[in-house]
């Protein structure tokens, strides 16, 4: 019984003191709350200097238990920042630091003031240096993918093209179906199917293998149609002349027909390969870390648009180099036409 009464008393005392404290703090802070409200009103009306004057009335009190001082000075700092007065903005933040030397809000603020004061291009260069290593790693992967597909897809395309023009019906039908399937569905879907879909049938690929497979099949189908067009654009007399000196179909293809398609095929194939550079960005969706994915990671980590601009510049650099290289190859391939 005695024990019970003791607890009740303790509880009551505790509750009472809490109430007292609350009451005291409310009484104590009333002026400042009014000040903040007035300052907010002034800000809402766009009168920032008036708001600053109001906020300055908040003074430091021992311990700053309510946090009103820090709050007011940081608010002043931000307002001065908005008014582009970096000097006063910094000194407001420094007032906070004078009392709390490791207040992180004030420290961050001073850092961003400093950044604001450094010239734009310098910030850009700093960002570039910060993002470049990661982006270049991604770019190396992009180029690896592009080179692999450039090596694979013309071979695949040639086989499909020869299959398509074959007079042996089953072969030409299979090749027709292949082109129909891979040209008629989105590359993104094909990549998803290979990487996420096939495992459910017990076939699992590493991201790189899946990327090469998806891009390789898709680009082989496209190049197949381009190469077929090239072969069929060579006039019929060439095949007849080759046959007339005793060449077999395959000898004629290899020695006479296909070499003549090179020049005609360069522009459309160059086009495809430039599209390929950009299409590799799609494999970022199947856990491949290439240029697009790296840029996306940087952008999300720092919320800094410089990462995206840099990635765009790297893509442009690649496509520009390709354009020039293919123009050169085209001229070389057609050397017999104008000499």
């Amino acid at each position: 019984m005695k024990f019970f009464t003791g607890r009740v008393v303790t509880k009551a005392i505790l509750l009472f003191s809490c109430l007292l404290l609350l009451l005291a703090s409310v009484c104590f802070a009333t002026d400042y709350d009014q000040l903040f409200t007035d300052a907010n009103d002034a800000m809402a009306q766009g009168d920032l200097p008036a708001a600053i004057t109001l906020l300055k009335k908040v003074e430091f009190e021992k311990g700053d238990e309510s946090g009103a001082f820090v709050r007011s000075r940081m608010q002043i700092a931000r307002l001065q920042f908005a008014l582009k007065d970096m000097e006063k903005a910094s000194s407001a933040a420094k007032e906070v630091l004078a009392v709390y030397p490791d207040n992180s809000e004030a420290l961050n603020f001073l850092a961003s003031v400093k950044q604001e004061q450094t010239p734009r291009y310098q910030v850009f260069v700093q960002d570039c240096l910060r993002f470049l290593p990661q982006l270049l790693k991604g770019a190396v992967m992009t180029i690896t993918l592009v080179v692999c597909i450039i090596l694979i897809s013309p071979v695949g395309g040639l086989l499909i093209a020869l299959g398509r023009i074959s007079t042996f019906k089953p072969v030409s039908s299979i090749c027709w179906f292949f082109i129909w399937l891979f040209r008629g569905t989105p590359l993104l879907l094909q990549l998803f199917f290979i990487y996420y879909g096939l495992p459910s049938m017990g076939i699992t690929f590493k991201p790189f293998t899946a990327a090469i497979l998806g891009l390789g099949l898709n680009y082989s189908a496209y190049l197949g149609e381009i190469i077929r067009g090239g072969i069929q654009s060579i006039e019929h007399g060439q095949m007849e002349a080759a046959k007339a000196i005793g060449m077999s179909y395959w000898q004629a293809m290899r020695r006479v027909i296909i070499p003549q398609t090179y020049k005609r095929l360069m522009p459309p194939i160059g086009n495809e390969f430039i599209a390929l550079i950009k299409d590799t960005a799609l494999v970022s969706t199947i856990a491949m870390v290439e240029l697009m994915r790296s840029a996306d990671q940087m952008f999300n980590a720092y919320f800094n648009v410089t990462a995206l601009i840099l990635a765009a510049l790297i893509y442009l650099l690649f496509t520009t180099i390709f354009t020039f290289v293919f123009e050169k190859i085209e001229v070389r391939a057609g050397i017999y036409e104008n000499r």
């Binding site: 002349a241 007339a244 005793g246 003549q260 017999y336």
Partner: peptide, 24 residues
């Protein structure tokens, strides 16, 4: 086909439009 090729190589033919191989 290989027999036809062998026969063709014994009979030369010249065409109206020459049909030279332009890349050689």
């Amino acid at each position: 086909p290989h027999k036809i090729c062998a026969l063709r190589s014994e009979i030369g033919m010249v065409f109206q439009h020459f049909n030279l191989f332009p890349h050689m």
